[in-house]
Design a protein around this nucleic acid. Structure first.
Length: 779
DNA sequence: CAGTGAGCGAGCTTCCGCTTGACTT
């Protein structure tokens, strides 16, 4: 029995704090929220001032009963959940759910886990801030109302099992909008002109000086005209300008910036970053990884300073405090940093080491001095033209924080701003031209989102929280609204004009462009759902919706507005939109008429069906004529899109299944199924590989595939037994196994499948029943 | 494991944020 029970949110935090507080204190954790709204009937009494009905979350029952028992025994219960809206609500739910006596309950907060911060907190307890709790209740109830009223509209008007929500629907909208921008983008081209001069360096050796013309030309003819003018020209250094510049380090990591940098520098997915960070946190190596704060504790700043002085010298140290700029930040924690700033590396698996190193470098760099640079711009005049060539260089005079860390950008074209040292040249030097190249360059389409750049965008808009960025991205993919994938680029031609020895040579070259790696693409269903929501629910689909309601929550937290009134104001127009949409709106299936089939004269259309996107030939019979044929249907193939498929592509799909002829008196046909293209013969299926296609494969090629499959099938059966025809020893993808009554059984290691007797097989079947599929019942 | 796409109706789906393990193919 202990006098003091302290309750925090995270078990790892509990362990640390217990060490600081000594034996009079027992520190336990609530594992986050312990109660939530009931699932049935919204969990909210809408008629009665939105009165919430809370219930203990099923997976928290054990935690709650343990805390209840411990809190009865304790003299004082300290509620030490985080100092933000959700943390305050957790404290209040604990008070209610544990039936705590208010007189023996204290609310304390700290936002760094250091001994002094915690002792200070214990000295300054306060009451639960009910206004802040009410702001959280408003947030929770609003999200429930939006999610549970709009989702059922989608079930009725689009497809069952779909979902909508304040956060996920806007996240999908960002991706859909961007996809449309990409689809509508047409590249324009211009001509970029680069010159190469030869200059003597200090040792009299010839070195190259690159310079770009201060003008781009709209077309080939203008570029050509310019090069014509360069014939016989002289090139003179008009001017050299040197300017000092400085660069400052980025602030230490928040959840969002850690996810972005780990993606760019280490190639981690957002979810991967969080799970590696979680392990580092639990091992006590970094501070809490779900935070929106860039703040560092004074302890951290001091140890960083000592480390920098020791490692690099005093002139590399500069103490900085950063201010959080992101919208809606609640700053309950510190920035993400090493627990012990003096440790530049940790033990553990490779991923943990790499992520830790990144965090260490970023944190240390944030306490280092600016880098001092010198930028040089050289203007080179052309005797026959008013244009100028410009060469620029940048040298680092003092590296400062660059010694340990350089922040990456999403812009892949940005790589040429590195450290370039110009050769020694003086004003009025005459330069020797080597060559000039005018190359056609295309404008770039807007970039599709990566997981990390989507997180960045969401944070900028104040949508979602550090604990939800990773789950949001998983959700919109699980719902089938968005896919993350690679897409091949295309090849295009571009023109280059090369000026060498007063001659102009024109060439057509090829380049690849538009290759996408691990980008987020909307699916057809994602686009249909998005368009439906934008059309009918402009209120919640507005990118500023979250920011607007956050303002209201802040006012509730200040005690200036009653949360029930805020919800009332929101709910009335919102609910009306729900009702109207249910009543007026047509079913949304993204239907498009593509044209008419020239052979039958019937209309060809495309839409989302029960099993995904499909093309349809003919109309569903609303005529009384029984002779009306049913329409034909065919699924869209991978790579085809509802919005872009053409009549020709659609008509191709109806060519399947294709009759190829007969083999061994049985029909042979080719088609595409759920598992890709296949040949059908004698009710057996053979996959068509990538080398051929069901549209073009010949009978002979098909027969070859059929025979190959037969041969393989013969080899697949290792052994059969006459006494037990249901029992067979087969050769599968993962080696030999026993098949009996449609169930499969593993053969123990070290047993030769060839030598198995019927008795052996029966024994294996008895001893090791096939693992059943993990079907779990839901309550 | 590969021909789905009619229509009816029962019973189900769904949100966001706070936290970790317990689960396997």
């Amino acid at each position: 029995m202990v006098d003091n029970l302290v309750i925090v949110e995270s078990p790892a935090k509990a362990k640390t704090i217990e060490k600081f507080l000594g034996k009079d204190y027992l520190v336990k954790s609530s594992f986050g929220h312990i109660r939530d709204l009931e699932k049935k009937e919204f969990g909210v009494d809408i008629e009665n001032d939105f009165k919430p009905r809370y219930t203990i979350s099923p997976d928290k029952k054990a935690v709650v009963s343990e805390l209840k028992k411990l809190s009865k025994e304790a003299k004082t219960v300290w509620l030490a959940s985080d100092e933000d809206r959700e943390g305050e609500a957790i404290a209040w739910h604990l008070l209610e759910a544990l039936n705590l006596d208010e007189d023996k309950t204290r609310r304390i907060v700290f936002h760094e886990i250091t001994k002094t911060a915690i002792q200070e907190a214990i000295k300054n307890p306060r009451k639960i801030d009910k206004n802040l709790v009410n702001a959280q209740q408003a947030r929770r109830i609003l999200d429930r109302l939006v999610g549970f009223e709009v989702s059922p509209v989608l079930w009725k008007k689009v497809k069952p099992q779909l979902s909508a929500g304040r956060v996920q629907s806007v996240a999908v909208r960002l991706i859909v909008d961007r996809e449309r921008e990409v689809m509508n983008f047409t590249a324009t081209s211009s001509y970029r002109v680069n010159a190469l001069f030869m200059v003597d360096d200090e040792n009299g050796k010839k070195v190259a000086l690159k310079a770009e013309l201060n003008k781009r030309f709209d077309n080939r003819d203008e570029a050509f005209k310019f090069l014509e003018k360069c014939k016989g020209a002289n090139y003179l250094v008009d001017d050299i300008v040197k300017k000092p510049a400085k660069r400052s380090p980025a602030p230490p990591f928040t959840t969002s910036t850690l996810q972005q940098e780990a993606s760019r520098k280490l190639g981690f997915s957002v979810a991967q970053t969080m799970s590696v960070a979680q392990r580092l946190y639990e091992a006590g190596k970094i501070t809490y990884m779900r935070t929106d704060s860039v703040n560092l504790s004074s302890l951290a700043i001091n140890t960083a300073k000592a480390k920098i002085n020791d490692f690099f010298g005093e002139k590399y140290s500069k103490t900085r405090q950063f201010k959080t700029s992101s919208k809606g930040a609640q700053e309950a924690h510190e920035a993400i940093r090493p627990t012990y700033m003096e440790n530049e590396s940790v033990s553990g698996i490779k991923q943990e080491q790499r992520l830790y190193e990144l965090i260490w470098k970023r944190s240390i760099a944030s306490q280092m001095s600016d880098a001092q640079l010198e930028k040089t711009t050289v203007n080179i005049g052309i005797s026959t033209s008013n244009e100028k060539f410009i060469a620029s260089g940048e040298i680092v005079k003092f590296d400062g924080f660059l010694k340990v860390y350089f922040e990456s950008t999403d812009d892949e074209d940005d790589k040429n701003n590195g450290d370039t040292l110009l050769p020694p040249i003086q004003k009025n030097d005459s330069l020797l031209l080597d060559s000039i190249v005018a190359a056609q360059r295309f404008s770039q389409r807007p970039p599709r989102y990566t997981e990390a750049s989507l997180v960045k965008k969401l944070e900028e808009q104040g949508i979602g929280r550090p604990s939800t960025y990773a789950p949001i991205i998983t959700t919109i993919q699980n719902r089938g609204y968005v896919v993350k994938e690679d897409r091949p680029g295309a090849e295009r031609e571009f023109v280059t004009l090369t000026f060498l020895n007063d001659q102009i040579k024109e060439q057509i070259q090829k380049e690849n462009f538009g290759y996408e790696r691990s980008k987020l693409f909307p699916t057809d269903i994602g686009m249909v759902v998005n368009d439906f929501l934008v059309k009918n629910f402009d209120l919640i689909m507005d990118f500023n919706f979250t920011a607007k309601v956050e303002e209201q929550f802040d006012i509730i937290a200040e005690g200036k507005v009653k949360w029930e009134n805020m919800l009332k104001d929101f709910y009335k127009p919102f609910h009306q939109q729900v009702e109207e949409t249910l009543e007026i709106s047509e079913k949304a299936n993204g239907e498009r008429i593509l044209g008419t089939d020239p052979q039958t004269g019937k209309p060809v259309s495309v839409k989302i069906g029960r099993y995904g996107p499909l093309v349809q030939l003919g109309e569903t019979g609303d005529s009384d004529n029984d002779n009306d044929e049913k329409p034909r249907f065919a699924s869209l193939q991978p790579g085809m899109r509802l919005e872009t498929i053409t009549l020709e592509e659609a008509l191709d799909l109806f060519k399947l299944p294709r009759d190829l002829g007969e083999y061994e008196d049985k029909k042979v046909s080719a088609a595409i199924g759920r598992f890709g293209p296949y040949i059908r013969h004698d009710n057996k299926f053979v996959s068509i590989g990538k080398d051929s296609s069901p549209f073009s494969i010949t009978l002979d090629e098909a027969i070859e595939l059929i025979e190959a499959k037969k041969e393989k099938d013969r080899k697949a059966v290792i052994k059969t037994f006459d006494e037990e025809p249901e029992l067979r020893v087969l050769n599968g993808r993962w080696g030999p196994y026993i098949s009996f009554n449609k169930k499969n059984y593993k053969i123990p290691k070290g047993t030769e499948a060839e030598n198995l007797s019927l008795e052996d097989c029966r024994k294996i079947i008895e001893e090791g029943p096939a693992p059943k599929k993990g079907k779990r019942k839901k309550k």
